Computed example of a mutant assay.
Amino acid sequence: MFHLTAFVTCLAVLMYFFFSFQVGKARQTYGVKAPAIIGDPDFERVFRAHMNTLEWMPIFLPALWLFALYISDAIAAGLGVVWIVGRILYMTGYAKAANKRSQGFMIQSIAAIILWAGATGAILWRLIHP
């Protein structure tokens, strides 16, 4: 069973859900009425951080699960937590200023790349060495 990876998946979804509320809160704070997505730079940064997280979810989640299946549940979960921490740092940094998002972006992207490369390597290894 892959309990750790499943739990980290739930945490990632919870994080994304929380980010959704942050966008709603920013709409109220900065007076950007739906369906508008522009109008105040402070709102736009929160919105873009949320959308960028959505853009990374289809990269992160399959890589997380394939890594867990082919390599290790515990290591996948650990890297998944690193990815979540990176996304939180990205969101909080970007909400303050666009130039404060880099550290979180690097952390989450490195975690995602390790998950993807590890999974891809393990799958290729098993294809070559059945």
Rank of each mutant, 00 (worst) to 15 (best):
124 L>T: 12
95 A>P: 10
65 W>C: 03
80 G>K: 06
66 L>I: 13
61 L>F: 14
90 Y>W: 14
33 K>C: 00
128 I>Q: 03
103 Q>K: 14
49 A>G: 14
100 K>W: 04
82 V>M: 04
46 V>E: 00
118 G>V: 13
65 W>M: 07
87 R>T: 09
38 I>C: 06
101 R>F: 06
104 G>E: 10
96 K>C: 09
67 F>C: 02
32 V>K: 00
103 Q>V: 15
71 I>P: 09
95 A>N: 12
83 W>H: 15
87 R>V: 07
109 S>W: 09
111 A>Q: 02
38 I>N: 04
61 L>W: 11
127 L>M: 13
100 K>C: 10
101 R>E: 05
47 F>P: 09
89 L>M: 15
46 V>N: 02
113 I>D: 00
78 G>F: 13
92 T>H: 13
124 L>Q: 01
45 R>D: 04
84 I>C: 07
117 A>I: 09
96 K>V: 15
55 E>V: 12
69 L>Q: 05
113 I>G: 04
116 W>A: 11
43 F>V: 14
57 M>I: 13
120 T>I: 13
68 A>K: 08
78 G>Q: 12
51 M>Y: 08
69 L>A: 09
60 F>T: 11
78 G>P: 12
88 I>N: 06
93 G>K: 00
62 P>K: 08
127 L>I: 11
83 W>R: 02
32 V>L: 02
66 L>Q: 08
59 I>R: 05
115 L>S: 07
114 I>L: 11
79 L>S: 07
73 D>S: 12
116 W>N: 02
114 I>V: 15
97 A>E: 06
116 W>C: 11
112 A>T: 12
126 R>T: 12
58 P>A: 15
44 E>R: 14
54 L>K: 14
116 W>Y: 10
121 G>M: 03
125 W>H: 14
60 F>E: 03
76 A>T: 10
92 T>P: 00
